[in-house]
Design a protein around this nucleic acid. Sequence first.
DNA 1: CCCGTCAAGGTTAGCGCTAACAGTATCGTC
DNA 2: GACGATACTGTTAGCGCTAACCTTGACGGG
Lengths: 326, 326
Amino acid sequence: MADVAERVGVSAITVSRAFKRPELVGPELRQRILDTAQSMGYVPNQAASALASARSMTVAVLIPSMTNMVFVETLAGIHDMLLPRGYRALIGVTHYSPEEEERLIRTYLQFQPDGILLTGTDHTDVTRTYLSALSSPTVHMMELLDDPGSLSVGCSQEEGGRLMTTHLLERGYRRIGFVAVQLDPRTLARLDGYRHALEEAGLYDEKRVWRLPDPSSIHLGAAMIDRLMAENTDCDAVFFCNDDLAQGALFQCQRRGIRVPDQLAIAGFNDLPASAWTTPTLTTIATPRYAIGRHAAAMLLDLMDGKEPPRRRVDLGLTFIAREST
Amino acid sequence: MADVAERVGVSAITVSRAFKRPELVGPELRQRILDTAQSMGYVPNQAASALASARSMTVAVLIPSMTNMVFVETLAGIHDMLLPRGYRALIGVTHYSPEEEERLIRTYLQFQPDGILLTGTDHTDVTRTYLSALSSPTVHMMELLDDPGSLSVGCSQEEGGRLMTTHLLERGYRRIGFVAVQLDPRTLARLDGYRHALEEAGLYDEKRVWRLPDPSSIHLGAAMIDRLMAENTDCDAVFFCNDDLAQGALFQCQRRGIRVPDQLAIAGFNDLPASAWTTPTLTTIATPRYAIGRHAAAMLLDLMDGKEPPRRRVDLGLTFIAREST
DNA sequence: CCCGTCAAGGTTAGCGCTAACAGTATCGTC
DNA sequence: GACGATACTGTTAGCGCTAACCTTGACGGG
C-alpha cells in the first residue's frame, strides 16, 4: 500500500480510502490509485485490515452436513445474501454433533467473525457461554426459538410432521408408520408432530415407529422396506422423515412388486428434486431452505449494522405437496 | 494475550507459544496457560497471527457449483484433509464462469491464502497472471494438465466418454446419441471421447448430438426424452453427460412406456446414489471425486510445507459400472 | 472581508500477534 | 571445574492497515 501511495504521489491512507471508502476520494484520483494498484498487482491485506478496523467481514456458518442437499441450499441462500455486501462465509460442518460444533466455534472465534449462523437449537453449554460472551450477533436457522432473546429463522418441523400425518389420516390410512433416521432434533420434532396427530386420533402405536441413528440415504430407505416386510408389519402407510429415504422405499417397492399407494402408501419430507419424478411420484412437504438461508443472512446483516431486525423469529412456513404415493 | 500472560505471570510470547508451538513450553506451565485462557474466554486473534507470521492458514477453494453433488463431495475430501492440519478452506462458487472465477480470485487474494485449489483448467488470462505472480501454490482439480509446470489431480473426462461409448458399441448399439448440457470443459471432453470412439467405428453422426447450455437436472433429462421422441430420433442408445439427466430420462421412459434398454438404452456419468436404484438401474461411470479432493489437498499441503509432491499430475482413474439400462 | 462550512487529503498511533535473537538455568562430560 | 549442549523463557521490533484527529483550500453568505 505504501508503494502504491508513493507511485501515485499520495499518502497510504488515501490508497486505503480509495478501496474501502471510495466516496472520500476524488473520482479521478481514485481511478488513478486503482489503476496503479492493479498494474502493480497490489491487493489489500485482509488480515491487516481486520486487525486495524476490528471488522473481519466474515460470518461463521455452521451446518450439520454438506452431503445433505437441504443444508447446501441454505448455504446458497446465505452466500447470495452476504457476498454482495462484502461478507464472506466461513463454513463449518458439525456432522450433527453439538461437541463438534463446540470445537468448530472455538476454531472460528479466532477469526473474530462479525456474525454467526447456527443450525438448530441443540448446542452445548460451552457453546452457549462462548456465544453469549461474544459481541457478534448469532442467528439460529431451521428451527424456531420461542425465547425472545434469541434470533431464529426457520419453519416448524413439528407442524410438518403433523401436517403429513393429518393428510394420511384424511386419505383413510389408519395404521401409519414412521421411520426416523439420523435422530437429529428436526427429525425428532417431525416424529413428535406425527405422534401428536395420531394420539389425537387415538391411533398412535409405538410399534409402528422405527428409530435409526444412521444417516438418511436411498439405500437405507430400500432396506427399510425389506425390514418392514420381514417383520410382517401391518402398516398401510409409512411416513419417512426424509425424501431420499422415501425414494429408496419407492424404488424397492417397485422392485418387490408392492403396489404404492394401494398396498402401502409412502410419504417423505423436504421435496427433493427426484421426488416429482419417481413412479409413483412422492407426496412430501417442501421446506423453504433457500429462503431460510437468505432471511437468516439478512437478519444478521441488520444486526451487524447495529439495526434491530423487523422480527426476531421468522417462520417461513411449509408447503404440503400431495402426489401419487399416498 | 497480554492479560492472560500477566495473570499467569509470564510474557506474551510464552502464551503465544503455548497455543502455536506447544513443544516449546513446559508441560505444566502450558496447561496453566491454556486453563487461564479458557477461564478468561481468551481466543487467539487469527488476523493478528496471520499478519505477524505471514501465514493465513487458509486455502482458497473455487468450485463451479454447490448444488452439483460432485463438487460437494470433492469439497468434503478437501475439508477432511485440511482441517486436521489446521488449515481452513475459503470456498468460492464460480457458477461455471471463468470471469466469476477471476472476480473471486481477486477477492480471495486479500486473504493471502497459503494455497489455492481450482476446478478445471479453463481460466482467464488475468487469473493466470494473478496466480503466477503469487508465491502460494495452486493445484488444479478434476481435469489433468499436461504442462509439467502445473499441478493437477483428476481423471480423464475424455477417456470416460470413450469408455462408455465403447461399451455401448460392444453391446451392439449402432445409433448412439449424446446429450451434452452445461457445456463446461468437462462435459465437452466427454463429448470428445464419445465422438472419437464413434469416428473410429465409422458411426459418428452430428445429428445425434444435442448441446444445451442449461444446468443438468432430472427435469431436463425427462424433457430430453420428450424431445427425442418428438424429433423421431433413430437412436438406439443415448449417452447422457450426467447421471441426473440420465435418471430423468429413465423416469420419463418409464412414464411413457419406452422399454429400457430394449427400445432405447440409456447411460449416464458420475454414478450418483440414486443410479443404483432406478428401474432399470443405470449404467454409468464412477468418478473418484472425494479422492480427488483429498489428493489435491494433500498435494497442496506438501507444497505449503515446501516439499515437492511425489507427482505433479495424478490420474485417479474411472470406474465403469455396467447395470441394466444398457 | 470575515467567518463558517465542506470536501479532500494527511499525520499519528496502535490493532494483537510472532520472528529473530538473546538470555538463563540445568545437566552431563571430560 | 570448565565447557558445551539442552530446555525453557524473555525482549525488541514490526507485520499492513485504519480510526481519530488534523490541515488546507475553496466557496458562499452576510
